[in-house]
Design a protein around this nucleic acid. Sequence first.
DNA 1: ATATTCACG
DNA 2: ACGTACGTGAATATC
Length: 553
Amino acid sequence: MLDSAPTLERLRPIFADPNIAKLNQNIKYDLLVLRGRGVEVHGVSGDPMVADYLLHAGERTHNLEELARRYLNHPMVPIEDLIGKKSKKQPQLRMDQVAVDRVAAYAGEDADAAWRLCLHLESRLEGPPLRTLYDELEIPLIEVLAELEYNGIRLDKKLLKRVGDDMGRRLEQIEKEIYVLAGRPFNIGSLPQLRKVLFEELKLPIQGKTGVTGAPSTDQETLEKLAALGLPGSELPRKILEQRQTAKLKSTYVDALPEMVNPATRRIHASFNQTVAATGRLSSSDPNLQNIPVRSEQGREIRQAFLPEEGWRLLTADYSQIELRLLAHFTDDEALQRAFAEDHDVHSLVAAQIFGVEEGLVTPEMRRMAKTVNFGVIYGMSGHGLAVRLGISRDEANRFIEAYFARYPKVLDYQAKLLEECMRTGYVSTILGRRRAIAGVRSKSTYQQRNQPEREAINMEIQGSAADLIKLAMLHIHQRLRRDGLRSRMLMQIHDELVFEAPPGELKQLAALVKEEMTTPLEKELSLRTPLKVELAAGPNWLDVEEIVEGEG
DNA sequence: ATATTCACG
DNA sequence: ACGTACGTGAATATC
């Protein structure tokens, strides 16, 4: 089998030859396994999983079993038949513990299905834009993602141990205080028990119900309302909030991350999934590196544990306001475009417009509200949704939206046109022609009464186009790093941010290259009507990065 | 397996 | 009358 070293050596030149096409289901996995054995693969030409993702983004899975059933009408032999029950926890049999003839039959069926599915699905991509997206973006990106996963990132286990011990002590303390306030001990993590304490024993007023079962909510928003009531028993929700935050950070990050460090590389190797998000974004798992805490002070400590290679520096490159810039591009609104062209503060500008004041008189509160409105526009906001987030009445929220659309009529026209096209064709397209099918869009609905599909449609073009842009940038950066012979490595993508590590002396060159590839070529290639802006920062860990100002140092 | 909550963009 | 902003992944408890 492939496992034997002589066979691998014989295949090495074939794998290395970019002119010999290779395809497989989830071929990124093969790249990683082979790279782990020192074998480089070039010439990746296809992957049915990725082809199906471009054809049907938003399907629950694009796994081989599903694809074979759907397109080949062929039920695959379940892998459980070979290696035992499928389970994330339970250790499975390995292939080398299974009889060779059974493995061969299974592997043969897999390879055959992948090959036939690739032919079939690729023919369905039918030229531009999907086939171009496949051949020139998603397939080449596989190699880049494999490299991100292979590179991994170093973690400061000692720091997390200290933080975890502190949190453990803090939790013991808070939990004692909670039991006193509740009048008895109970399992704070159990929603039924917590509801009983809050709403039955302490008789606090129910603030809202959960979506599916209609049970009383106990989420952050609810607990904050309860804490603000000033009733007897209002101390408790405050403490619960504190306990929740600390318990969440400890279990999800501080305790879990050190367990994920690969002892051989002493780094964390997450997955960057290419076929999950309906909009074209990547997702990350095992662990998820795209939701590492940053907003709370307590959470930010965790970022400090993400380190570059010893003696190297971490570099972060963030797109500034990429979604609003794309809104300006798509709507062709001149005021928004000018704001970005002149690098103005777009939240302040919108605040001035919707509050009807000079930009110099915009207060931080007005700016904060305008920022919420700006995000709302990208999400297809309703009056109600905006009201909840701003803590104002629905009427007031509607007046804000009216004021916004009165000043930015092109945004309203743009959204109406997008919905109309979605209704006609059944899908929404991004800047590179990526498609997401959306059913349930109605003709001329107003923003007050938009339904879920209509909001999804409105969000797709912008969120998906931002995903297109950063994927393209990753591809270009990867090629430049090779061409220019840099040792720097790309480590992570967090939707509008890329993270790199640079060896001593290479930071400036890397920073310049990254900034360039994330902006100018994309603006030109895609004829963007708004410039892109990238903010660079570097430091000894992911928290303590300092902005790199051009022409400095 | 499902529901809830909460971490991120 | 009601549920209401878009996209994710993980932990926990309960069924």
